[in-house]
Nucleic acid binder design. Structure first.
Lengths: 230, 230
DNA sequence: CGATACGTTGAGAATTTTCAATCCGAGTGG
DNA sequence: CCACTCGGATTGAAAATTCTCAACGTATCG
């Protein structure tokens, strides 16, 4: 993990970082280039759009995450859109190769990121197929985002600020914004958790964990630092 | 592609192949071992089960596919269950290493499989979030399976035999079996396609392609041979 | 001929969407 | 400072989709 950080630092120190304003895209689905991006600050939403123009959020990237997770595939499979103001460090493919040469563990690291992303996507996919009700999906998303922010399970005393709106919650769970609103009300009135003005509050951790536990699936795209290279 | 085949042949010729009877598992989610499996004959369904015991199919593996797609992660993220009688060729991790040593392109090949699996999972996930109606999801699955069997777009004259039941269709699309039945009737009566007694018939290719096109997402897990190493 | 697994059908219930109206807060220009 | 606007959020009511439960049909296999 220390290694990983040092690798990133080393790499980023050589690349000029890039600023993206809220709402703008870092890269677009379907386009291609030889860059991957290391998120330095801000939140990024990962959108997949189909031919009819429907768009869904398949993940979020936070500082420390690397986008996209792939290397061989040339075309981006999703768009990365800045939720708030974002700074990223672009890394060119050739640099990756050099990096790997100097740090043999980088290869395994990258591989781990990809494999973890795959696990997550599969788990999320399965969770969706179970037909979990809206309450569970929303609770799951908020719990996971809070977890990802704090890097530990959130408790009743935490106030987790996330830069997303109910619309994003809808896109990320496959629920209509109006139904997200109703679902949030239900969760609040049931004393489980609360999402208001970009702030997540866990009211009853035990209950939330029980509800969420059913479809445990760590949301929000993979922290490279979650990798266990043991 | 020729290379890939030769690598597999080479490898499989040294390992005793394994027979699994219909309904039995090749490996179970949560367990771990150092083997990956190359499917020689028969169909395999990939199940993900959550803590409440709900199970969903996240993909199918056909002859030529390799399971699981990962290498670093030790624990299987899904169960692989034989749909009909299946023959697989187990490959031990140590063998992978040796293989890679002799054939440098094997590394890229494997990486490609993983990345492709990730793309597919993400696309499927997004498709689900769009909230596509049952008809579209079922049509999409059947079209993709037919495509995968024929290795080309199916036409009105093809009769594609697949060893799955309506129950599997339900598990793979997140729809109740009884609603699968109704959906199939609707698709048949609308003159789109037909699924009866394990046989897929496309009645109107243009219409099906239009319906399916919206959420194009190649189903049924990734053929290694689909990889483009150019 | 049962037993068993899969498929079909009907009717009511539950969930979610759609549409439409309204509200609220933050920014903007006068 | 105020009116205005605009994007989110909320609410209500009706419509659509899918699920559940329960019954029944049909084929296969020993």
């Amino acid at each position: 993990m220390a290694d990983e950080e040092s690798i990133k630092d080393l790499e980023c120190s050589r690349s000029p970082s890039l600023s993206i304003r809220a709402g703008e895209a870092i890269f677009e689905q379907g386009s291609h280039s030889d860059y991957i991006y290391n998120v330095i600050s801000g939140w990024v939403s990962l959108h997949h759009t189909n031919r009819e123009g429907n768009s869904a959020i398949i993940g979020f990237a936070l500082p420390g995450d690397v986008l996209p997770f792939k290397r061989l595939t040339k075309f981006y499979n999703f768009s990365a859109v800045a939720i708030d103001n974002v700074t990223v460090c672009p890394i060119h493919a050739s640099r990756q190769v050099r990096l790997e040469h100097h740090h043999p563990e980088y290869d395994a690291l990258h591989r781990g990121v990809v494999e973890q992303a795959l696990d997550l996507a599969e788990t999320n996919l399965a969770a969706h197929r179970f037909g979990a009700p809206a309450e569970e999906r929303v609770a799951n998303l908020l719990w996971s985002l809070a977890f990802k922010c704090l890097r530990r399970p959130p408790s009743e005393t935490d106030r987790v600020v996330v830069p997303i709106s109910q619309i994003q919650i809808g896109l990320a769970t496959g629920i209509t914004p109006v139904h997200v609103s109703r679902t949030l009300r239900a969760l609040r009135q049931a004393g489980l958790l609360q999402f208001d003005r970009h702030m997540i509050l866990i009211h009853n951790r035990a209950k939330v964990e029980m509800l969420v536990g059913a479809s445990t699936n760590g949301w929000g795209s993979e922290h490279a630092s979650d990798i266990n290279l043991s």
